[in-house]
Simulated scan of single mutants.
Amino acid sequence: MAPLAIRACTATSAVGRGRDALAKALAEGRTGLRRNDFGDDARLDCWIGRVDGLETVELPASLQPWDSRNNRLAWLALAQDGLRAAIDDAVARHGAERVAVIVGTSTSSIGSTEAAYTALEDGEFAERFARPHVHTPHSLGEFVQQATGLRGPCITVATACSSSAKVFAQAARMIDAGLVDAALVGGVDTLCGSVLFGFNSLQLVSSEPCRPFDATRNGLSLGEAGGFALLERANDGDTGLQLRGYGESSDAHHMSSPHPEGLGARLAMRDALARAGIDAAEVGYLNLHGTATPANDSIEAAAVASLFPDALHASSTKGWTGHTLGAAGIVESTIALIALERGELPGTLNSDTPDTACGPQIRFAPQRADIRYSMNNSFGFGGNNCSLVFGRA
């Protein structure tokens, strides 16, 4: 594929607001996880990655019809790392109608819908919850378009935990087809009862901070996050970061479990490398999906070992942020870009006992190394897989 320039990129999570906060937490080995203190749902014994300050974020009057925890986090994330200036620059050069909005989310504003149903009045939503813009899967996409003034195609991708990785692939196809000249991509997911108790009902939530790829791992820690990136065609004179390849696949195996041999994961990674036009040995860092559930980690590790040499540095960063579901793709792509830009390759926080089922690619300790390419894996329920390759121009 033709490289796409990444003009701006940002992520806000439990470790802080923006790329610098994320890079600092990674370098210091400082987790954003804490014991569950999420309102009425705090009765669930687990650890969460919660973004502080969302309760006091105030949207402008014109955006009040979209007010929800999810959209407040989107508003917060849009204000970081010069993203607004990059959007304005793209609009000045291409026009608002030529810049797409492509965002991923797994639950959108369902937390607000839950609250509305718990406060029904005579079977109807109370006036304070009667906001039809919020109670739809497209709440996030519509909100971001309204908040930015962009007028190109507006798409919400909802493929569970691969959602905000797949937005990069969607943007690449739309730009290549000439439908748009640039795309604001990203994703936002926030904590709510459906998320916490839904995953707990599947017996996937740990009562301790998650330990990806550790021999004693016993489940995930849920988190919330939001982030965005602005993509456009690369120019000959570009010197910055680029999207170089993507790969997508579907296991078609099970509603919530990956293929036992990792066939879909391997296909996604192989296609991403092929589109980037590089060999697996050229990848310096791979951010793994690494949820810390027993089956997912061992299957992903085996898929990685089947494609990559022992020298690869691969790690899961969910010990910092928690599993941010539909936002995992954008947050962990940002981490892959930080590794590419700064040469700081994160380890796997909280994990210290290697699982013998995992290959030498899985690293618990951080490393410094100048790398040319990095990757990110995001795998979701239903076998939705997406792998991305990033490079320096």
Rank of each mutant, 00 (worst) to 15 (best):
S306E: 14
A74H: 00
D279K: 15
R244Q: 10
S387C: 14
E224W: 06
A303F: 08
A327F: 02
A357N: 12
V205F: 03
L222F: 03
S194I: 15
R98N: 13
H135I: 05
R368V: 12
G329K: 03
M375C: 12
L230C: 05
H313L: 08
I110T: 08
W320Y: 15
T10W: 04
N296M: 11
A357D: 13
E282D: 13
A8G: 04
A182M: 04
N385L: 07
N36K: 06
I278M: 06
Q367C: 15
H135W: 08
P360V: 07
H313F: 08
A77F: 01
A281H: 15
H253N: 11
P354M: 10
V331W: 03
G111I: 02
L22Q: 03
C46Y: 01
T12H: 04
A252M: 07
F197N: 05
L54V: 05
L325I: 15
F143E: 00
E121G: 10
V57D: 02
A292T: 00
D189H: 03
S206T: 01
W75R: 02
Y117A: 10
I371C: 08
N218W: 05
L196R: 06
Q80P: 04
G186H: 00
T348Y: 03
F381I: 11
T353F: 09
D271K: 14
D238V: 04
S298G: 09
R131W: 10
Y246L: 09
L184P: 07
T107G: 08
N235I: 12
L312Y: 02
S164M: 09
F125A: 08
S351E: 01
